[in-house]
Design a protein around this nucleic acid. Structure first.
Lengths: 199, 199, 199, 199
DNA sequence: AAATAAGCGAGACGGTACGTCTTGTCTTCTT
DNA sequence: AAGAAGACAAGACGTACCGTCTCGCTTATTT
């Protein structure tokens, strides 16, 4: 219970309060899941976090900006693809985890809310794409990239289109149609891929 | 200075004003394209339409409700699949039109905005799914349905999964990744489908 | 308990809500006396009056503007000089009432607060002078004016300076020095006046 | 680049920085004249003085406290009555100087602002009366006191009431009515006094 | 010389109130 | 009866200051 070197205090000249930062991100996360995006407000986040509004505005520009940070803290760890050596196995595992993430998890709810907000606000869309979607896209295509590098897939493969065909239907169900994204479905996507590329 | 027979007046005892209805839908449509969803307000719609706020609230529950009506007026006509007899040709044509609709058209912008709002508000999501997404889903699977009925595709085909694989990547690019949805891409989706089933 | 023609309701196209107007003025008056000027806030007035902040801002520009209205409702009735025919008697009576008003009454507290605020804000000072001080000044010199008109005082009397000598010391004690303003004091001011002008 | 002997540096263990003290008082004075009391803030004073807010709060309790100090530095020197031996002459001279002080000078502006604030805040009123008004009151009655002591005025004179009649109208014009306080006016006040006592 | 300790500039913090904006309801008058 | 007008209660917005706090620096004295 010692105060280590990373311990930040309220207000000092060397930067922001880590305590406040974490409280805000957690409050935003919780409120989104509890109330839904529309009813999350800066005032609500401040009250829940026990923080002054000005402290939020000092470090974030809007509630979407808070939520991006909240999302980024969770997304990396949950979604890094494994690498067993067998492409089919890895793809099946990754799509299952992606499905759970998008459809069931709290960070997934944040992701969908931000994705929605990006439709409403072009300026935010740019921010969201570069900070959230680009890394996510990178994870989504990572297994195919590795397979090309290791020679298990031909080097002239159109990675963009192939990735879209692999994960697009999954996002579609999770975000647009609201259909179920169970193992049957994700496995079928992998089967279709293998049919195209000879697995 | 006479009023023609079809002329509807402000306030009358014979039902709602068609004039006001149309003015509201057009104002909503225009404002969405001009300002983006976030900056469309009921007050703005009323002002643009030259209509009292109460008139809007009398007939619609919220701005999303107005936009659904505005969308439904435009969507049907644009997206009914043609039927040339050749499945591959029809699929290619439909996906191209769907891509243009989602990515470029004004009704497509309304659609994306409403889809986004459905992420933020579960109650609206139900409304939107039944009134907009279900018909859209019906159009998206119509060609495959016909082909099954006419025997060109096997009757045990999983229509849901196949439709998702066909249009999912397209929605994904249009709504999520923001990538281009040109002919190359839509044709590639049809090729993949034919590889699975076209023989 | 009927709703007469003057009865005003919440929001209609023909003007403001009398109910809200009165509630705001009373709330402002009460809060000033209870808390003192510095702790009267627009939010506090709104909450006490059961009124939305916007309703206050629609009709008043600031809390001082509300207080001016609150003051004007009370001041007229309390301070109209009587006219017994005897100048000395009338002057003594008026100064006593003025002393009580400035030093003891609730409207007097409002007056002192507004006078103070006028020192702090030149723009408000102009407003306050024309709407409150000018009528007050008129009341303060009314007895002398009448006496000049009726010939009891010479027509070349410098009314401004005489009025200042009569009431100035009283305002000075009430507002500046905080000294007592009892009958001894007000009567002494009248004696001095009579000494100057021959009783 | 040497530091002179009187030079105070940031931080030392034996007392406050004279440099900071002076900078704060000057900043407060300047800002009051430039912006008016309402727009003078602790943050503004700190910024103008090139001083940390905490430094101000360490030595003063509020902006009014700063202004009292700023006022006291200027007031004494300007307003000590002269003593020519002739009461009427001295009174005329003093009232003219008092009028200029209250109505035209920068310290007079500070005085009026503090007087105003004393109306708003009873606790500050006590502070202000004892530290500013009492000495001022002493100066205002000094000439009459001396005249009593030296036998030029009767020893049973009610000094309080006489002083009020002498300077009250002047304060009244300067602070309340905003009327002009020229020589005509101040001389008239002295004439009235002489009429009462001058013989 | 090193250690100590106070005042300092800096600025983040939890708060409160500001004045504005939009929402959805309501009432009145007009057509 | 429907519409136009617009006042209303509610409550979130983003900003400005408040007064408190911690920090690391500078400096004068003490050891």
């Amino acid at each position: 219970m010692t105060s280590g070197p990373g311990r930040r205090h309220h207000g000092n000249r060397h930067g922001r309060s880590e305590e406040a930062r974490v409280a805000v991100l957690e409050a935003a996360d919780d409120l989104l899941v509890e109330l839904g995006f529309a009813r999350v407000t800066m005032e609500g986040i401040a009250a829940r976090a026990g923080v002054a509004k000005q402290t939020i505005y000092r470090w974030w520009s809007a509630k979407t900006d808070v939520l991006i940070d909240a999302f980024l803290q969770d997304a990396d760890e949950d979604l890094t693809p494994s690498d067993s050596g067998d492409l089919a196995t890895d793809l099946r595992a990754y799509l299952r985890r992606l499905a759970l993430f998008l459809g069931e998890s709290d960070p997934g709810a944040v992701f969908r809310a931000l994705l929605a907000q990006a439709q409403h606000d072009p300026a935010f869309a740019r921010e969201f794409r570069s900070r959230c979607l680009a890394p996510q896209r990178h994870r989504d295509r990572l297994l195919l990239e590795r397979a090309v590098t290791s020679g298990r897939l031909p080097s002239d493969l159109d990675l963009e289109t192939e990735t879209d065909q692999l994960v697009g239907p999954l996002y579609y169900r999770a975000v647009v149609s609201g259909g179920p994204v169970g193992e049957d479905f994700t496995d079928a996507l992998v089967e279709a891929f293998l049919l195209r590329h000879g697995g």
